[in-house]
Design a binder for these strands. Structure first.
Lengths: 151, 151
DNA sequence: AATTATTATTTGATATATCAAATAAATGCT
DNA sequence: AGCATTTATTTGATATATCAAATAATAATT
């Protein structure tokens, strides 16, 4: 009821402040990543690392990083062009795509790792474990609330 | 130190879960907004309302909603094409743009308002005032941590 | 007043988001 | 086996994000 006392106008709504944070974090990440690997985007960097750590099909990876399949197709294409990735069909299911990190890709991941760690530490500086837990819990609730039942 | 125990891989970092929430909320908003006003995007809807409530120049509005000026230019252009907005030069400073809501725009805002309220309520369902405060506080900290000093 | 610097906005180029429709391969059904 | 359905990915169209460079108007400086 009075829940929204301070969150009443569009400019003071949750989305507003959450989105502000996301944008600030992405900007920080992009700037720092560019210092160690020019010509790679935050999304590409994340996807590269996720592919490296998970042996999954393209759309499973997409789900993991919350990318639309169409977006994923295009991001992957760009990374193949830059020779970070290569693509092959899954032997057992030729609809599926298997993505492999190239040597160049692996070298880039090595460069990225410490910077990603730094970015996280920078963003979470002075946050307590408790706060992180709270944040996670609250965000989960909101995410849950926003789920649209698919019929 | 052990701060990151559970937040160690890229897929479990803050950005990850914050971005998940943002995307879920945006999706909900878009679906609901489309029900009352087809052919408008979440961003356009937000900007329309913010323009209506604030008598500011284009870039001030952009700052308010965290849009890049270039993006703002294009969003505004689309909304002018759809006759939601009109544009005029500021009399005292001809570099500045004054945006005005058209009659059609005003009618659309009327349709949007209740849905925006509903979206917020849906997203924040079952969240306590305390949680909202915590969320706001934690997000502010992170946003602050991510600020890049501009020289 | 003329020149330079700053500010507001735009444009170009490229990356990503999203929806709908198209493909192609695999599965399920009869 | 043959056909309909589902699944994984792609393509097209449009919107937005971001950076750099361009414009145009104002402000500051010499």
């Amino acid at each position: 009821m009075s829940n929204n006392m301070k969150f009443n106008t569009p400019t003071t709504t949750v989305l507003y402040s959450i989105e502000e944070t996301v944008k600030a974090y992405r900007k920080l990440c992009q700037q720092n990543i560019s210092k160690v690997v020019p010509n790679i985007t935050v999304d590409q960097a994340l996807i590269l690392i996720v592919i490296d750590r998970n042996n999954m099909s393209q759309s499973e990876i997409a789900d993991l990083v919350f990318k639309d399949y169409a977006s994923m197709t295009r991001i992957v294409k760009l990374m193949i062009d830059k020779n970070y990735l290569s693509k092959a069909l899954d032997d057992h299911d030729k609809r599926k795509t298997k993505l492999k990190i190239t040597e160049l890709g692996k070298a880039i991941i090595e460069k990225l790792n410490p910077m990603i760690e730094l970015n996280r530490e920078t963003a979470l500086n002075a946050l307590t474990d408790k706060e992180l837990e709270q944040l996670h819990k609250i965000l989960s609730k909101i995410t849950q609330n926003c789920q649209i039942p698919k019929k």
